[in-house]
Design a protein around this nucleic acid. Structure first.
Length: 255
DNA sequence: ATGGTAGAAACTCTA
């Protein structure tokens, strides 16, 4: 079973790239973030034609998540229970006996921003929900754009990024506290190339200069981590014309 | 000295 995640930064713009990529890599589950589409605008027919059943939780202009699955998805949840949030950032569903959470964690803007406080509050609520879901589902995966780089090696210039949003200690601690629930960063289960990143700013030729951060992650429960045989970042779509600023991440499971 | 780019939508906000 292949699980994948990709922040597409507008599904309207990126739909052809998403269909092309899914056709090539054939993930069983593809989690998308920043779809920026209301559900009634979601391109469900095109996605069905490509062999995927879509689940969408979107809004206009900002945010929005979706799960594309090769087999039927059940028991969808579209919000963090008990956390009032206008922003569409989560979607959970059960696919092929695996409970999948697709998440778009708030960016935070800067550590001085109100949005940063929202990010930390959001992560605390998210943790509570994941704990509950994990208790009920031993086969549990949390995929998405976390907007947090865990370690120095996940940042092209950790000195310059120290204390900045996406790499500040409170954010990294929040990510650690998700792992402390009993989740594994699937990417680090394996030997990986140096300078492995999933996001590069559109500005300053950041991609060409390898100035990236690894902020998109696939976290796996113990049971799924044991079954995980590979996790890779596919940088190829970042080279496309009109690319997303994020690259997809794929984890392969032998279930 | 505070850019630069991209997306959506409205002439600005978010990332």
């Amino acid at each position: 079973m292949k699980l994948a995640t990709w922040n597409v930064n507008s599904l309207k713009v990126r739909l052809p790239q998403v269909l092309d990529w899914a056709g090539k890599h054939q993930p069983d589950v593809l989690c998308l973030q920043e779809t920026k589409l209301e559900n009634d605008k979601f391109p469900a027919p095109e996605i069905r034609a490509a062999g995927y059943e879509p689940l969408a939780n979107g809004q206009k202009t900002y945010n929005g998540v979706a799960i594309l699955a090769k087999s039927a998805a059940a028991d969808a949840v579209t919000a963090i229970p008990g956390f009032a949030d206008e922003q569409k950032r989560v979607l959970a569903a059960t696919v092929g006996g695996v409970r999948v959470v697709c998440a778009y964690v708030p960016n935070g803007e800067s550590i001085e921003s109100d949005k940063y406080q929202y990010k930390l509050r959001w992560l605390a609520a998210f943790r509570g929900w994941l704990k509950d879901e994990l208790a009920r589902h031993p086969r549990f995966a949390v995929l998405g754009d976390y907007n947090i780089a865990p370690e120095d090696r996940d940042v092209y210039d950790p000195k310059a990024w120290e204390g900045q949003v996406l790499f500040s200690v409170p954010e990294r601690d929040a990510l650690k506290s998700l792992l402390d629930l009993g989740l594994k960063d699937s990417f680090r289960l394996f030997e990986q190339p140096e300078r492995s990143f999933t996001w590069w700013d559109y500005r300053m030729n950041a991609f060409r200069r390898k100035m990236g951060l690894r902020i998109d992650h696939i976290l796996l429960s113990e049971e799924l981590a044991k079954a995980c045989t590979a996790c890779v970042i596919d940088v190829e779509p970042r080279k496309n014309e009109r690319p997303s600023d994020h690259a997809p991440v794929i984890a392969e499971l032998k279930l």
